Computed example of a mutant assay.
Amino acid sequence: MTETVTSPAADQHAAFLRKRDASVRGAQGALALVTTAWVGEETSIEGVPGTWAPAPTQDGLQVVATAEDGIVVDGQEVDGAATVYGHDSMTPSQIRFDESRTGFVIGPDFHGRYALRVWDAESEANRAFRGIEAYDHDPAWAKHGTFEAVEGGVGFEYGKSRGGSLRQGVSPGIIRFEHEGEQVELLALPDGDSLQIVFADATTGDETYDVGRFLFVRPRHDGTVELDFNRAIVPPCSMSDQFNCPLPPAGNRLAFPIRAGERRPRFEREEDAGAAAEG
C-alpha cells in the first residue's frame, strides 16, 4: 500500500481551503447575499417587511415596522421605529428577519446613502453550491517579494464588476516580486492592516473566474512581503451578483499564467446544464 506524503505547507493549504468553504457557506457568507438596497428616501424593500428610510441621525437607516413583521434589531423586536446603525459605525447593528434571513446596513456611498443588505442562509446559490475549484498546491507560487512605501501613495484607476464610471484608488506603495527572471510590479488597495491585490493573469476568463482574483498580503516592517498565490481567491461577485467587486487595474493584468489558488465556484445548476448538453 502506497502512503501519501504531504508537506506542512500542503496541509496548511488544505486547512485554508476548508476554512474558505465554510466561510462562503456561512449565514452571512458570499453565497447568502440576496439583496443590496440603497435607500435615499422612505421606501419599502422587496422581500423584507417594514418601511425603510435614512436615519435622522444620518449614520444608518430607520425602519418602521410592527411586532407582527418579526424584525429584530440588536436583539430587540421592532414595534414602531428603530435605528439600524451602519456596519462601519462605532455601534453597528445586526438585523434578524426570520430563521434564515439576517441583515446589516452598509454605507455611506458617494451620495451619502446607506443600503440594507439581506443575507439568506438558504439562498438558491447556497443550495446549488458544490465547492470552489482550485489548483493543487504549488510551493513555487509562494513568492518572496518586497514592498516599497511611496509617500502620498500611487494613484490608479480601476473599474467595478457591475459597471459604472472608473474609480480612483491609491496604493500605499509598490509590491515587487520576480517571475522567470523578470520583475513584476503590483498595486494594491488598503484593507485594514493588509493590502488587497486585485489581479488578472493569462488564466483569467479561461481557467479562472473572468473578473480576476484577489490576494491579501501583509508587508513586514523590513519591507519584505510574502505573496502566496496558492491563497488567491475568487471575488465574492463570483457567488452573488449583489457584490460590486473591484476589477484589476491595468498594471495588475499579468501576461503569464498563475496556476495556483482558487479557480472558480462550482454550482449544481451548471453541472446539470453540462450534462443536458452532453446528452
Rank of each mutant, 00 (worst) to 15 (best):
D191C: 05
E124H: 10
R127C: 04
A115G: 07
E185A: 14
P139W: 08
H179E: 09
Q183D: 14
Y114S: 00
K160N: 10
A140C: 15
G181R: 11
L195S: 07
H144K: 14
G173F: 01
Q168D: 12
P190H: 05
E180K: 13
E133L: 12
E185T: 14
A142T: 13
A134C: 14
G163S: 08
G159N: 07
G173H: 02
P190V: 02
G163Q: 06
P190G: 03
G163C: 12
L186D: 01
G145A: 13
R130C: 06
K143I: 10
R113K: 09
H144R: 15
P190R: 06
D120Q: 04
G173D: 09
F147R: 00
V150I: 08
I174H: 05
A128K: 06
S161H: 07
F177K: 09
G164R: 03
V150C: 15
G181H: 12
R130K: 14
L189E: 09
G152Q: 04
D120A: 05
K143D: 11
Q183Y: 12
E180C: 10
W119G: 03
A125G: 04
K143Q: 13
G192E: 10
G112P: 00
L166Y: 15
Y135F: 11
E182I: 07
L195T: 09
D138E: 14
F129L: 02
L116K: 00
S161E: 10
E133A: 13
P172A: 15
L166I: 07
I175M: 07
W119Y: 15
V150W: 07
H137W: 02
R162G: 11
R162V: 08
G155E: 11
R127N: 08
E157R: 15
W141D: 01
S123P: 08
N126P: 02
G173Y: 01
G169L: 00
A140P: 05
G155F: 05
S161V: 06
Q183K: 14
A128G: 01
V170L: 11
G112A: 11
I132C: 06
A142K: 13
G155I: 03
A121E: 03
A149K: 08
Q168T: 14
G153I: 06
E185S: 15
G152A: 03
E182S: 12
S194G: 13
E122P: 02
G159V: 06
L189G: 09
R113M: 06
G169D: 00
A115W: 00
P190T: 02
A128D: 04
A140D: 15
W141E: 02
V154S: 03
A115E: 01
E157P: 02
I132F: 00
G159K: 08
H179S: 06
R162Q: 14
K143E: 11
G192D: 15
P190K: 04
H179V: 07
D120N: 12
A134T: 03
